[in-house]
């Protein structure tokens, strides 16, 4: 098996195991508490509105906003790590259809793997900091995945046209 295929398949399975383990950890230790927190803070804000207590209402809504922001990202991270891992595995299996030199294929495989790791990592870091840095990491990761996938698609088309010419 070529180095590029090995990189994608082994990297993909490792990322899938990592993404699933992260999801399991989150489901056991954090998800139920997070959902309770979201529900309680939203209900609390409306209950405070019923009592005409604007300070408590705003505090509860702020808690809701923060808890929902974190929850959405945690779920996204789990889903994207596993989804991208499966993409790496299937691409790895079919990477011999990409008609480029092995060196370029390794470069594309590295781009895909790196992007698949750091895109969700950037999303995860957004739960720690609302600044621009985590967003920049997420954008860079997704751009890497898209660019490398486009490159791979170009390699598949190149193979098809050469087969047609032959």
């Amino acid at each position: 098996m070529s180095r590029s295929r090995r990189l994608l398949i082994v990297g993909g399975i490792a990322l899938a195991v990592w993404g699933m383990s992260y999801g399991l950890w989150y489901a056991v230790f954090a998800e139920h508490q997070a959902l309770d927190n979201i529900g309680a803070s939203l209900a609390g804000s409306f209950a405070a509105a019923a009592e005409r207590n604007p300070v408590s209402m705003e505090t509860s809504l702020e808690h809701y906003r923060e808890a929902k922001y974190i929850y959405d990202r945690q779920v996204d991270v789990h889903g994207h790590w596993i989804g991208l891992a499966m993409l790496l595995i299937v691409l790895g299996i079919g990477f011999d259809r990409v008609n480029f030199s092995e060196r370029l294929k390794v470069f594309l495989a590295l781009g895909l793997l790196l992007g698949a790791v750091i895109f969700p990592l950037g999303v995860l870091l957004q739960t720690l900091s609302h600044g621009a840095f985590p967003r920049a990491i997420a954008i860079a990761g997704s751009a890497l995945v898209i660019a490398a996938l486009l490159g791979s698609a170009a390699g598949v088309v190149a193979r098809d046209s050469s087969a047609g010419a032959g």
Binding site: S45, F46, A49, M57, L61
Partner: peptide
């Protein structure tokens, strides 16, 4: 959309209050 989610809920509860 995330900002709208919060602002609509805030308007809802503030309007109710």
């Amino acid at each position: 959309h995330e900002a709208q989610d919060y602002s609509l809920l805030a308007r809802m509860s503030a309007g109710a209050a």
